[in-house]
Write a protein that binds this DNA or RNA. Structure first.
Length: 341
DNA sequence: ATGACGTCCTGCCTGC
DNA sequence: TGCAGGCAGGACGTCA
């Protein structure tokens, strides 16, 4: 499941691959994943369209150019524009280079949830009629099987591609998502940035100005279990199940400990462990326990260096205790009962 | 404010 | 062998 380091890996890849590209087409077979925010116009208020038709999305996004890709928590942000620098005649008759004053900036926000990931390459859409192994097709008993034409991907066929953006260079950006949990929202930049769910995301743990004092004030006011607090996106952005386990192990803190009972030295340890683990995981291009892949389809390397996550019954790499798995809010937590107090 | 649980989805694992 | 049932998991919604 992509957390901050995995999302950062994707974002870094995309910045190398898709900046300046123009979108020339869109395909998708899972409208449920997509929300379209239509801009205001001619006295009409902006409106939200859930499960849009492909043509509707394409009508809004076709012709836009990608200007930047960034990340907010676990969300991927792809900024687009249709602003073309153009020659404007000034009253004095001389030519000035400038852009139109109207807002033409758009934002494509993607949350990959658990099994979503972007792949850059080329695919062809093969429509087949029939039954899936579980007999469940989204629409009218038909399914779209997307198979790879060529590219650096390890998979020959990817049955889980549900959204493709076509670029002006013939390449494509595809969203593969086994469980169809991913969420994609497209609309005018300002409106997307002002969505309540987006605005309430907590501070970025790796921002330079996110100092230990700020971290302590956020954490120590919470009486929930520390594991839950670390995973709460409104408290701190980007930490999920894998890295909260890893961070707690490194700081020798028990996942069930109420956050407001942590002592000053524990909070400091937690803060530096958080930075250390996240930075290390980014360096290793994320964790591929289940099916995370970078945009070339390659697995991340953090998994083989991990300390406790999904290591129930194995020896603790620090004290040789036996790693235990417990449930917190229906999520599994892994920790060493011997050295995490 | 907090917790407990349901929802989405499907490959994989277990048990009969 | 084959099938049914349960599980995992992020974020959100609902209800207590």
């Amino acid at each position: 499941m992509p957390e901050l380091p995995e999302v950062q890996t994707i974002v870094d890849d995309l910045n190398k691959k898709i900046i300046g590209r123009e979108i020339v087409g869109v395909w998708f077979d899972a409208p449920k994943l997509i929300t379209l925010r239509m801009p205001q116009g001619y006295g009409e208020p902006s409106r939200t369209i859930k499960k849009p038709k492909a043509k509707k999305l394409e009508g809004q996004i076709k012709g836009l150019k990608i200007i930047s890709v960034s990340r907010r928590g676990k969300n991927i942000l792809i900024y687009l524009t249709n602003n073309q620098p153009r020659i404007v005649d000034s009253p004095a008759g001389e030519s000035l280079r400038g852009t139109q004053s109207t807002t033409n900036n758009y934002l494509l926000l993607i949350h990959q949830k658990m099994t979503g990931h972007f792949l850059y390459g080329k695919w062809r859409i093969a429509r087949v009629v029939g039954r899936s192994p579980r007999g469940s097709f989204g629409e009218a008993g038909k399914s779209s099987v997307v198979s790879l034409v060529k590219g650096p991907l390890e998979e020959k066929v990817n049955n889980y591609i549900h959204l493709i953006f076509y670029f002006d260079n013939g390449q494509q950006l595809a969203l593969s998502d086994l469980r169809k949990f991913a969420k994609v929202i497209f609309g005018p930049k300002k409106e997307i940035e002002n969505l309540p769910d987006f605005k309430k995301i907590g501070p970025e743990p790796l921002e330079k100005n996110f100092k230990v004092g700020k971290f302590i004030s956020l954490i120590s006011s919470e009486k929930r279990k520390i594991k839950q607090v670390l995973m709460d996106q409104e408290v701190i952005a980007g930490i999920g199940n894998i890295y909260s386990d890893e961070i707690l192990w490194l700081s020798k803190i028990h996942p069930l400990k109420p956050a407001n009972q942590l002592k000053a030295d524990e909070l400091k340890r937690l803060y530096s462990a958080m930075k250390k683990i996240l930075k290390k995981a980014i360096k290793l291009r994320g964790t591929s326990i289940s099916d995370f892949r970078d945009t070339s389809g390659k697995a991340g390397a953090y998994a083989r260096e991990r300390f406790v996550y999904r290591k129930e019954g194995e020896h603790c790499p620090r004290c040789k205790g036996i790693i235990k798995r417990i449930k917190i809010k229906n999520r599994s937590a892994h920790y060493c009962p011997k050295c995490q107090k």
